[in-house]
């Protein structure tokens, strides 16, 4: 099932715990927190695109889309850096002659950046499921108009 690390930007406080956790786990951080104009924090990491742009130019086949997910094989990486050019998010980093990118912490139950996030801004989800949370949040805000005491007497209410 293709999953990725997503961020609920309204919850991010820019504390950089995700960076530190990733660095602790992988020596270099594969997620980086950018603060836009000193006001809006945005963690950026590999989006695990479903039709990735990075795989196309990869000459050695190190990056490929297989079994419904983006696979990476560091052995085959030549460090040519074409994927860096292709990636629209700047999520791949060249280090020690090979590419470093988010591999979703395969040994952990959930990626460390998600586990450490103090505000639960980062989360793992399937792409189709997380719109639901946002819709539910909106429903919470809107449902007041459905309160019978307010809606009573409205025309057409069943």
């Amino acid at each position: 099932m293709p999953t990725a690390v997503y961020c609920d930007l309204s919850r991010c406080i820019g504390c950089r715990a995700c960076e530190l956790a990733c660095q602790r786990e992988n020596k270099t951080s594969r997620i980086s927190l950018e603060v836009v104009e000193g006001l809006a924090p945005v963690p950026v990491s590999c989006r695990q695109c479903e039709t990735p742009l990075c795989t196309a130019p990869c000459p050695g086949g190190a990056l490929r889309y297989e079994n419904g997910r983006l696979e990476y094989d560091a052995e085959k990486c030549t460090g040519c850096g074409l994927c860096i050019l292709a990636c629209p998010f700047g999520a791949a980093v060249l280090k020690g002659g090979v590419i470093e990118r988010c591999d979703f912490c395969p040994e952990k139950e959930i990626p460390v950046c998600v586990a450490t996030c103090p505000t639960a801004a980062l989360f793992c989800a399937e792409a189709e499921s997380f719109g639901k949370n946002i819709r539910h949040r909106n429903v919470e805000k809107m449902k007041k108009i459905l309160d019978p005491s307010i809606a009573a007497g409205r025309e057409g209410r069943r």
Partner: peptide, 21 residues
């Protein structure tokens, strides 16, 4: 290394950058 403790009543497993370091 360290691993997170989702059962803790204060942080529910999360840690700030300093905790991670």
């Amino acid at each position: 290394g360290l691993s997170y403790m989702p059962g803790h009543p204060v942080n529910e497993g999360s840690l700030c950058p300093k905790g991670n370091a």
